[in-house]
């Protein structure tokens, strides 16, 4: 990662009502980065989607909709790239199975990880003893 410009750490209740708030933070960050123009708007939409999908995934699949849990999100920005980490503290989810879903199958669920992988450059799900983390990188140059 290049020169660090900004780091944001958020702890949000494990409730879907906060998806909009977190998505908007992504939009605002993109506009701050790119200032103006079509490119800024595209990045704003993408970050809103990525944050919404990753957080919804943690709420629904890792934390099983438990409203008392917390989703931790960390956004690190350097002059070269953006790294979003979404932590969960549950049994986690099957990342490989989520990646293997065929988006053309008419399933109601299972497009979230596919969408994140389309919009970001690198996506990794790491499971440790204490937590799981979905790491998503995007190059900014």
């Amino acid at each position: 990662m290049g020169k660090k410009v900004l780091k944001l750490d958020l702890k949000v209740p494990n409730q879907t009502r906060y998806l909009e708030l977190v998505g908007r933070i992504g939009e605002d960050l993109a506009r701050e980065l790119k200032k103006k123009g079509e490119e800024a708007e595209t990045l704003a939409q993408h970050l809103n989607v990525v944050l919404t999908e990753a957080m919804a995934n943690a709420i629904r699949h890792a934390h099983e909709d438990d409203p008392d849990k917390t989703v931790q999100i960390s956004i690190s920005l350097s002059d070269e790239e953006l790294l979003i980490r979404v932590y969960d503290h549950g049994p986690g989810f099957d990342f490989d199975a989520a990646c293997a879903q065929d988006p053309e199958q008419l399933e109601e669920h299972g497009r979230g990880i596919y969408i994140i992988r389309c919009l970001m450059d690198t996506v990794v799900y790491r499971q440790t003893q204490d937590y799981n983390v979905l790491e998503m990188w995007k190059k900014l140059r």
Partner: peptide, 14 residues
């Protein structure tokens, strides 16, 4: 703004 859940609701409708 729509996410994968919104798309899923429409797939269910389909």
């Amino acid at each position: 703004f729509i996410d994968s859940s919104g798309l899923g609701a429409l797939v269910s409708g389909f």
